[in-house]
């Protein structure tokens, strides 16, 4: 242990301890007060555009939950563990499942999807997951909860690989208790960060293009509402820059998935949510090889905020065009099974 201070009298010791604490507190306090003052004088635009966490609502237990934050995807855990029975009930009742990676989360906003499916008397659920998720994870959910959707829409941007993302692999090995742990950790971190940065800034605000949109996911339909996407969009151009070959493994995996969907009484449909470096030709080729309808409207002037995900405005445009085309698929369907 550190050297004893027994040579001091108790009174002198106490005074020394008080001085030490005062130095510590003064050092912290001066820096905190100065930066809080600077932060308070910062223009609102800087605050709001670069720290979405300040604008986002608290992570409460309402209809939406904080689905991922600081590298933890609570959505993965909650869907797999089944600890949120209300959410799983909605998943089970869905007539239409929309499966994919994070581009599905950004590409199908509730404001467009909900009124469309309500008009047709159908329930839908968006099963989009971050971390470049492949088909394996949602496929496992399909089996685990014995889902029987009438349509399964898959965003086909190289998703048919029979291996989950590293993150999903970890989730699929986890216990429901781990889901609860991650939910608690994420919400607690979020609350602490929101409280802290109302007083003190984060160094990130001094750098450009650093916004981390905060995703809130609906328990009812799985759509994600992102708070605070950055301002500088990139235009998505509609010409193929990359044409990835369709691998045999993809065809095999996609065919097996199609067979499973049909066994469950559903129809497989492909879509393609645009991004910079488009992979649409890949989706077109795979859809043709499997004889699966492709609902993939081609629109001019769509924008992405990070080259990979649609901006909120472009997502509304894309989803509106998607549901118009999807209506044709619905029209060809037979009567609703009992």
């Amino acid at each position: 242990m550190p050297s004893s201070t027994s040579s001091f009298s108790p009174g002198r010791k106490r005074a020394r301890h008080r001085r030490l604490f005062a130095v510590f507190a003064a050092s912290f306090g001066v820096l905190a007060v100065v930066s809080a003052a600077v932060w308070a004088r910062t223009p609102d635009a800087l605050k709001r555009q670069r720290m979405p966490v300040l604008e986002a609502p608290p992570a409460d237990k309402g209809e939406r939950y904080l689905s991922s934050f600081r590298g933890v995807s609570v959505g993965h855990y909650l869907h797999f563990s089944g600890i949120d029975s209300e959410m799983i009930r909605h998943l089970r009742e869905a007539d239409v499942l929309i499966i994919g990676n994070s581009r599905v989360q950004f590409g199908f906003p509730q404001s467009v999807m909900k009124p469309f499916f309500a008009r047709h008397g159908l329930k839908y659920y968006a099963l989009g997951f971050p971390y470049s998720e492949t088909i394996t994870f949602p496929w496992r959910l399909l089996q685990k909860y014995d889902l029987h959707p009438r349509w399964v829409v898959v965003n086909e941007d190289i998703i048919f690989f029979n291996q989950p993302s590293d993150y999903a692999a970890e989730v699929m090995r986890s216990h429901p208790f781990n889901a609860w742990q991650n939910h608690f950790e994420t919400d607690a971190t979020y609350a602490a960060i929101r409280a802290l940065h109302r007083v003190l800034p984060h160094l990130k605000v001094l750098r450009a293009n650093v916004a981390d949109p905060v995703p809130f996911r609906s328990r009812e339909d799985g759509t994600v509402l992102f708070i605070g996407t950055p301002a500088k969009p990139v235009l998505i151009r509609n010409f193929p820059q990359h044409h990835h070959s369709v691998y045999d493994e993809e065809v095999r995996t996609a065919a097996a998935f199609k067979a499973e969907v049909e066994r469950r009484g559903g129809q497989l449909v492909f879509t393609y949510v645009p991004k910079v470096n488009p992979l649409r030709p890949h989706a077109v080729e795979l859809a043709a090889r499997l004889n699966v309808p492709l609902v993939s409207p081609v629109l001019e002037g769509l924008e992405s905020f990070d080259t990979s995900h649609l901006t909120a405005g472009s997502a509304v445009r894309f989803a509106t065009a998607f549901v118009q085309e999807f209506e044709k698929v619905l029209a060809t369907a037979g009567p609703r099974p009992k």
Binding site: R19, L20, A26, F28, L31, S35, H202
Partner: peptide
């Protein structure tokens, strides 16, 4: 010394609160 440590600890705590990174 202890007093330098105390001053530096206050500054480091402050810097941690405003400069933490994501990967835990």
């Amino acid at each position: 010394g202890r007093f330098e440590q105390a001053a530096l600890a206050g500054a480091l705590l402050f810097l941690t609160m405003i400069g933490y990174g994501i990967n835990n």
